[in-house]
Computed example of a mutant assay.
Amino acid sequence: MDERGLHRLIGTIIDPERLADDCAVIPCGDLVMVATTDMLHETTDFPAGMTDWQIGWMSTAVTLSDVASMGAAPGQVLLAVGLDRPERLRGIMEGARDCCTTFGAELVGGDLDAHTELTIVSTGLGAVAPEHLVRRRGARPGDVIAVTGTLGEAQAALSGYDRHRKELLEPQPRVREGAILGRAGVSAMMDISDGLALSLHDLLAVNDCGFSIDTARLPLPAGVPEGEGRALALYGGGDFELLFCAPPTIFPVPGVEARVIGEVIAERTVLADGEPLERRGYLHEWSG
Rank of each mutant, 00 (worst) to 15 (best):
A73I: 09
V34G: 05
A146S: 08
R174Y: 10
G142D: 05
L89S: 03
T148Y: 05
R176E: 04
L107A: 10
G11T: 08
A96S: 12
P130N: 04
G227N: 13
M189L: 09
F251Q: 00
G109P: 04
D38L: 09
L271D: 03
F211A: 08
H7T: 15
Q172A: 15
R183M: 13
I192F: 11
L243A: 07
G237R: 06
A157K: 05
A222G: 14
G91S: 03
F244E: 03
A68P: 01
T123A: 13
L31T: 10
R8V: 13
F251D: 03
L243E: 08
T123D: 03
E42A: 13
S159V: 02
L271R: 03
R8A: 15
R183Y: 05
P221W: 15
M70E: 06
V32N: 07
P171K: 10
A154L: 14
G29A: 03
C23S: 13
V144R: 03
L158D: 02
K166N: 03
L181C: 07
R140L: 14
A72Q: 02
A231P: 07
G29K: 04
H284D: 05
V81K: 13
V134Q: 07
E106I: 08
P16V: 09
A266F: 07
G104W: 00
L151C: 05
L203S: 09
V186P: 07
G91Q: 04
L6I: 14
I13M: 05
M93G: 00
T119G: 09
W53V: 02
G124H: 12
H132A: 11
L243D: 09
G262W: 00
G11I: 10
L31M: 10
L112V: 12
V144M: 01
L83N: 00
A154R: 06
E278A: 12
W286A: 08
